[in-house]
Design a protein around this nucleic acid. Sequence first.
DNA 1: AATTATACGTACATGAATGTATGTTAGCAA
DNA 2: TTGCTAACATACATTCATGTACGTATAATT
Lengths: 211, 211
Amino acid sequence: MVRKTREDAQDTRDRILDAAILLFEKQGVSKVSLDAIARQAGVTRGAIYWHFQDKTALFSAMIERVVCPLKIFREDNLAFMERDPLEFLRATTREFLEKIAHDANFRRIFEIMWHKCEYVGDMVEIRRKYIEEGESHIDVIQKAFSLAREKNQIFFAMTPREAAFGLVSLVDGMIFNWTKNHASLAECRNWQCLLDVFFRGLSEQTVSCAR
Amino acid sequence: MVRKTREDAQDTRDRILDAAILLFEKQGVSKVSLDAIARQAGVTRGAIYWHFQDKTALFSAMIERVVCPLKIFREDNLAFMERDPLEFLRATTREFLEKIAHDANFRRIFEIMWHKCEYVGDMVEIRRKYIEEGESHIDVIQKAFSLAREKNQIFFAMTPREAAFGLVSLVDGMIFNWTKNHASLAECRNWQCLLDVFFRGLSEQTVSCAR
DNA sequence: AATTATACGTACATGAATGTATGTTAGCAA
DNA sequence: TTGCTAACATACATTCATGTACGTATAATT
């Protein structure tokens, strides 16, 4: 048994990545050996070294497979931002949180990235590439806040940069505590309220009262 | 050279922990060998195994040394909470953030704990013990929110538990993004504003206007 | 049909980290 | 002053993960 068809090979690759998610979540990225991943996937290390250059590349591919199809900041979404930046902020944030809440594999990825991984060496670059640029890149949030204020959708005293930092921090913190222990997973059901708290608090009081 | 005095031994122990902080931050907890720590501290592995049972115990001691003298939730502070819960929340949060902002060694600990450490096995228990219970244990925050509402200091629609989760998430997220890349460290100068945003947004609008 | 490249499995060589066992010296108590 | 033990250093055994070289059979290509 060797030399599978292309689809079989793709399936093997996927099984390797699935096995990696499982083991990384259980034992942490650095403590999982390639042999353990191989055995979990029902193959040998040879298969892993065929599909991936090394453990880092495997990790990177694992992230990429889940993050890339998301594409929150794809082009049509950017058009959405131009049209209604405030709703864009709410919608993308909601979409992101909903995804984490309901997509188990997606949530596992974040559990790994936030709690079962050490960001040193190549890992720093990987995080920057897939998470910051792909998901919550603060520049986009900042621009949306800037536009929202220009369009008189919301008024706030701080800079758009600071507002963006605040929103990202709140969301990141929620996900962080959310994925930390599954116990608090249920409590986060009404993250919507907490987002409302942020946006309401961000608005100046005149606006808050006028509403 | 052997058999130092008791003070020398304590100094050796401290130097080992300092070396561990340095290397953990640079290379991540799991990638740092005990030999590397020993060499950085100017001793051998023998010294480490004398002072600590193993790497996990060393890590635990490293955290404990920095976290324990903090004691945000010590008894007099709990009395403070009973007296003025809302100010207690603001003050402890501020104290905590100030500490991280200005105490380099303290910040390094959090950089390690949030970005250079994998929480599996024993590490889960260590995090729970020193960080959750010692720093931002949500139960205390929750109780403060509950008291603040009883004393008519603040009105909010959600449960105290949810409010506490929100505050902890915001602070955690700020620290997370703060320690992630030192670039955003400067941006967090006005975290005070972001906390105001949260507390203002938390308040019902009637109160917000009345103020 | 023959060839070639693919998709792995197998085997080995290397290095590195851990734990422990044992040595050694100098403070400290009697 | 003599043990005794604290505070390490040294040495060794074991395990384990990695990388690579090589084998191999089959799908794809020609």
